[in-house]
Design a protein around this nucleic acid. Structure first.
Lengths: 160, 160
DNA sequence: ATTGAAAGGAGTTGGAC
DNA sequence: GTCCAACTCCTTTCAAT
């Protein structure tokens, strides 16, 4: 359970049909209601109702995703960031606004924040670190150099 | 440039219209072609052509994403994993198959792999660590306990 | 909660610019 | 590459079960 708009909010239970709809939309988010209906042996009207219900309940959303190459992100780097004198979460949100920053995790470790950043080339690393990240209030230390490669990036599970 | 099906493959350049279409589909992936067309002052036929072209070129995809709560992932944990005697990438792929594992990054640091895992509750942590992760060939050490919280999880940039 | 039918709306294709 | 127009197909609504 979570709080949304100041009210307690429970996600409705997903039955078999809901789950199967999500599964199909994961493969093709622009499949027509009719196509989904045919595949699951229900009517398009039912699909329409179910999808609306899930979207309204913020259980599922259909969105466009793009390839790394479409953004020309050829270099992927993980960064540890130390924070002092400011709320960690707030610093994290500031960092998250940078377009190069793909993910921001708050950690209980030597570095309060851990970032995954995408760059067009290695030449950008200094600009990014010095001008963009180090410039943010509260950031006291950056540990770069730990090049990362992504094996799995589960975009199907996101906070909405 | 990348290699796909044994052939050199260059993503087509995205012009203004393509970019704006993606932007709109990021907000609502099930917007109708007509709606997109109206907003961008072109015809639905043009939108149809552009979307097909981008999907065929694997530049963009529209997919369903679900909320953490829909999966009942209430606990989020980052894990460092040490690997010995086996290819790191291969171990990473094995770990990626576990449903709890949301992301797998290959790192050049003390831990060769870094995972982000989702759990239904803290009680699951022992099962996950001992029975699922430690059981994978090549895994020699796990550093748990660094609880994580996600500020940003950029699902809009994924390998397709 | 699902259905069926009907009316309005949307998608695609081919030909012209 | 975009548009127009026509045809086909889809979406939504509402009464009924």
């Amino acid at each position: 359970m979570q709080i949304r708009n100041g009210k307690a909010f429970s996600a409705p239970t997903l039955d078999d049909l809901d789950t199967k709809l999500i599964e199909l939309l994961r493969v093709n988010g622009r499949a027509t209601n009719q196509e989904l209906a045919d595949r699951l042996s229900v009517t398009a009207a039912t699909v329409s109702t179910r999808l609306r219900r899930m979207e309204d309940a913020h259980v599922m959303r259909v969105v466009a995703v793009t390839d790394f190459s479409a953004h020309n992100y050829n270099v992927l780097i993980a960064l540890g960031v130390k924070v002092q004198g400011r709320d960690v979460r707030q610093v994290g949100r500031d960092l998250a606004k940078l377009p190069e920053v793909l993910s921001v995790n708050i950690m209980n470790g030597p570095h309060e924040l851990e970032l995954l950043v995408g760059l067009h080339d290695f030449g950008e690393i200094n600009t990014l670190l010095l001008e963009h990240i180090a410039a943010i209030h509260g950031v006291t230390h950056i540990s770069p150099g730990i090049a990362a490669d992504i094996v799995k990036f589960e975009f199907n599970v996101v906070p909405l």
